[in-house]
Design a protein around this nucleic acid. Structure first.
Lengths: 239, 239
DNA sequence: GCCGATTTGTCCGTATGTATC
DNA sequence: CGATACATACGGACAAATCGG
């Protein structure tokens, strides 16, 4: 990254993950680190802020900054911050592939508008994809894209990586994403799309994504087979 | 709150929720707001930072700060940041009560240590409680507290509010909390504890809570009946 | 396409407050 | 009480992005 504080954040994060700063230990003080990285006190604090938000450390007033990160123990499919399916699969070291189930252009009626949060009359791309992990159909993705914000979307693009197209070709930057997670009964479509075994419920992640204009341009429902679904989160008091 | 930036954050949040700043509109610029609140540029930015992290606004470089908050449409039991069951119930306007199912002191063996993340040999309080919403047994909470960090815990305290005891009596401040969410098959204990109807799976929230010493002092498994479970989250790129 | 005004983003230095030991 | 460490706040400077003329 180009900014100083982000470089420092990455470096400190790597040092924690490498074990240089052990779980439960205190890292060097802000003034020491600012001297080491040749930056100002405020810039170093900004780096610590990001470390804290990611659950690596916990600053304690008057004492120091304690490491609270420890390696994950489970090896399931873990959702992180804002990242694509492919990124998540790579990070989890899982072989992944995608199959497009349907691709169509629709105009939002009242039902779709209420379901997705778009406005009635909006022109949308409706995409359904099946995600394979380790050769098994485990995630059923139902996307709605605002056509005006994602011009030129095509089945071929959807087949590879939508986010590469958004970020690379269109120059859209994804900044904010609101998620909610629930558990629902399987539908006939789920049974059709997924290798469900005898599961009768799926974990559903609903995702509203905003582009750098602050426009919600994507609503996605990701329907996961329960045994491959895990979601992680770090909450910080006051934030 | 006592700090300036938090006061400003709360005020701006209220103005957004009251509709003074509409969804998708741009709020006044940082310089204007800094003048209005009689504070420095940086202090106002700190307030905006918190607003952003809570999913109220999205700053766009060169353009302004866009409101992306809109009122929740669902009326289920919504989990927020770090908050107690009672706080969440009140915020959701639901009548809630709690029944203690068991209370015991144990020494962590290898199995418990692996399950909870505590160390083998740690002295723990093991508490099981059933949460009632609208008169129905919907959440089955299994807590493990590190005894050395929560001295004097008793069934009577557990019956009312553990967090009032921690914060009020012991002066512990809860700062960081790591969560993961999964879906599991119901156990016999689930069937015994909850009004499960014909559900065969439960949503499980695993919570590791850290006190202000950076010590993990609580591990909780909250097992929810699926139809009453929803989890919300806002992710921001780069953080 | 360029330029200048506006707006957010980053960085610095400093001062003061508050908690811990 | 003093030393140390994190937390808050201020003011100033410049960079980067956007938009309109």
């Amino acid at each position: 990254m180009k900014t100083i504080y982000f470089d420092i954040y990455e470096n400190l994060r790597d040092r924690i993950e490498a074990g240089e700063f052990a779980y439960q230990s205190l890292i060097p003080s802000e003034t020491m680190l600012a001297r080491e990285y040749q930056c100002s006190h405020n810039t170093l604090r900004k780096a610590l802020e990001v470390l804290k938000l990611h659950g690596y450390v916990q600053p304690i007033q008057g004492k120091g900054v304690r490491v609270i990160w420890q390696p994950d123990r489970q090896a399931r499919f873990v959702l992180g911050d804002i990242e694509s399916f492919r990124e998540a699969a790579e990070r989890n070291g899982i072989e992944a592939s995608t199959k497009v189930r349907s691709f169509e252009t629709i105009t939002a009626d009242d039902a779709v508008a209420s379901l997705t949060g778009f406005r009635t009359g909006d022109l949308l791309y409706h995409v359904e994809r099946i995600r394979f992990l380790d050769g098994k159909a485990l995630i059923y993705d139902i996307n709605y894209f605002l056509a005006s914000a994602v011009p030129g979307l095509s089945p071929a693009i959807v087949e590879s990586s939508i986010y590469d197209y958004l970020e690379g070709v269109l120059g859209v930057r994804i900044t904010t994403s609101k998620r909610s997670i629930g558990v629902e009964h399987v539908t006939n479509a789920d049974r059709d799309a997924l290798d469900l075994l005898d599961y009768t419920m799926v974990a559903v992640v609903t995702n509203h994504t905003f582009n750098d204009d602050g426009i919600m341009f994507e609503t996605t429902f990701s329907r996961h087979r329960p045994d491959y679904f895990t979601f992680h989160d770090t909450a910080v008091r006051g934030y």
